[in-house]
Amino acid sequence: MTGAAVVFGSVVDDLTRMLSLTFMQYALVAAVCAGVAGPLLGSYLVHRGMALVGDALGHVTFGGVALGFLVAALVGWEQPLLVALVFAVLAALGMQHLSVHTDAYGDVPVAILLTGGFAVGVLVINFDSVRLAGSIEDYLFGNVVLLSTTDLYVVVALTVAVVGTVAVTHKQLLYITFDREAAGVSRVKVGFYDTLLVVLAAGFVVASIYVLGVILVAAMLVVPVAAAMQTATRFRQSMVHAVVVGEFSAVGGVVAAYLLDLVVGPTIVLIAISVYAGSVLYSYA
């Protein structure tokens, strides 16, 4: 056998072993979910100049997970992801309210959400009664080992909800993204779809916390879309390209991290950024 054949055989053995491990099966399913929902939502958020909303919601989700473990310590209900979802959705609604009803402009509500959410998280995890399932780093940068079966159900349900809602409301989301003034004149409920978009983003962020972590989750909203912008001329085409990049990065990142013993979240992000760099070079060519 040649050296290449030996290496190939070894990789196949590793992949076979990987697919037999329950936590890696969970990780791949969660990665597939992140790779589709993130780029879909990001396609609207990025073009509306809301790329950092995902970052803010990520930090809020950290606070939400911490509160989830506080709830577990206090009443014994151990569903940190669901508590995080409630917290993130409420924070997203609060951010929208601040944007519309106060004189806070631009990214001020985003900055308040980002720092406030993280402050809640840091405060709560330092309570003596709170015991995280993993380390702080696991939540900051992701750790697929923490995914329980219930968590996986939540992740899949959130992804189905996000994709289904986008499929039904795509026309309206595209219109308000492209030209919110004309959409408003056409009686498209701009405020409602603004809110819907950030609530869906909150759902995606919560669903992706174990794969990407709160610090890195925004990458899946932004980087695949940025790559797709280099290659697509139509919006639907750009969404397809973004999802392909997202899936390649997410699934490829999980597999590469397993094979090379790397941390999953950063691996996914760096693969996505590499694809983006390649797409920029392609656009120059």
């Binding site: 492209f178 003034e181 004309a182 056409s186 912008m229």
Partner: peptide, 23 residues
């Protein structure tokens, strides 16, 4: 100057015109 920043989006003329059918 409709629609400003939106014109940097990868959106085709047909997709723009189709928006008129949304309502």
């Amino acid at each position: 100057n409709a629609p400003g920043a939106g014109e940097r989006m990868p959106v085709s003329v047909r997709e723009v015109v189709r928006m008129g059918r949304v309502p």
